[in-house]
Design a protein around this nucleic acid. Structure first.
Lengths: 209, 209
DNA sequence: AATACAATAACGCATACGGGGTATTTTTAT
DNA sequence: ATAAAAATACCCCGTATGCGTTATTGTATT
């Protein structure tokens, strides 16, 4: 099946790790690593000249971060998959990376055999993630069970997200417009916001609906 | 490490599959399957009496769907992990499942050995997903590269999401309030919405920011 | 029995907002 | 070179919205 050699590029500032990774990849049948970079600037300049199948990207890099690097490179290289390979496991790093265009996220303690499997996985349409990372991602979908809002308020908030106004909501849930306004005021108090737009943003971003 | 036996429950309407799964699990050292159900109603009534570590949940079930089942069960059983095990791979099924509380999503053609690995993975804090499912999930984070909005409009929309008003936005980006209003009108036209709340909801749900 | 919250409902007031235009300048694309 | 799109800016108008305040009823919780 995988008769085509997978071309991998590496962006990693630690020269020991960089060389080790390139040796692992280049020494494995079916893989080749012709491009390695110690910083994002070089990668951004040279990777588009000969797009690899997969880029292994560190986050902590001298000037531009790996996340910024992906943001810039992914725009030009739609067909290239970017895999984060980093020691950082905080939510910010993980979700910023995915939003920037990463298709996988591996932590650096990954065994060489698994790294190669992950690279194969991503070219075959998967999204390899270390266990704890994958868990973070699925958790981000779970409905917030600690919502401060009552059922009725949640119902109203849902309708605000659809752009409904007082009157429309009132008619839909069979109460007066004044009642809807009262609910909305309570929603604002509980969410510490002062406008529909803010309430909607907070509701969506905190999985309150 | 895993000296404790992993208790698994199965909710699956096809009796052949149900029996096969329970045999695989019960026949593997370190796993036991004492509870199997052919529908959600029975599962909802009985699973809370003796919470397992992991529930393998089908989606297409006679009355209540597996997604609804998780929604109800997960509220009571915070410590139990729910793994979807289904033939369905459409976006709706995947994301509704995750939102309802699933911690993993496996397609039914998974080899028995991998199923056991996935169950171990989820109890060890991971989130096992079949390759195509994981890809769907990471893709859902990627910024929409086909945004109809200009840079300036995107900037304004971001600020609308923070609850800023005309004046505040105008001051922040050093233009007149009238200009901000003009931008917002264009945003409404392009997104086919007629209020801030709607624009914010659409922007967030479509990864325009 | 008492407290608290949720859901219901109303009124006044100032203004931010959405819809309708029009116009100039700059940037980008063809 | 020229057209299209983006960014800037202003006007009017009516109303939906946010804020303050008050009140009744029912349902939990203690």
């Amino acid at each position: 099946m995988s008769e085509k050699i997978i071309k991998v590029a590496i962006v990693e500032d630690d020269s020991d790790i960089r060389k080790l990774l390139s040796l692992i990849i280049d020494g494995s049948p079916g893989f080749e690593c012709r491009q390695t970079y110690s910083n994002c600037e070089d990668a951004i300049e040279n990777i588009p000249k000969d797009p690899p199948d997969v880029v292994l990207m560190d986050i902590d890099l001298p000037k531009l971060s790996g996340i910024e690097g992906i943001r810039i490179l992914k725009e030009q290289l739609a067909k290239t998959d970017f895999l984060m390979l980093t020691i950082k496991e905080d939510d910010e790093s993980v979700f910023q990376s995915l939003c920037a265009g990463a298709t996988g996220y591996l932590v650096k303690d990954i065994p060489p055999a698994n790294l190669l499997l992950s690279i194969k996985d991503v070219v075959n349409g998967g999204s390899p993630m270390s266990a704890a990372i994958a868990r973070k991602v699925t958790m981000s979908f779970h409905k917030n069970t600690n919502s401060p809002l009552s059922e009725r308020e949640t119902e109203v908030l849902k309708r605000l997200c659809d752009g409904e106004n007082y009157k429309t909501i009132a008619d839909a849930i069979f109460v007066s417009g004044n009642t809807v306004r009262a609910h909305i005021k309570n929603i604002y108090k509980k969410l510490h916001v002062k406008s529909r737009a803010e309430a909607v943003a907070k509701a969506i971003n905190n999985n309150l609906l």
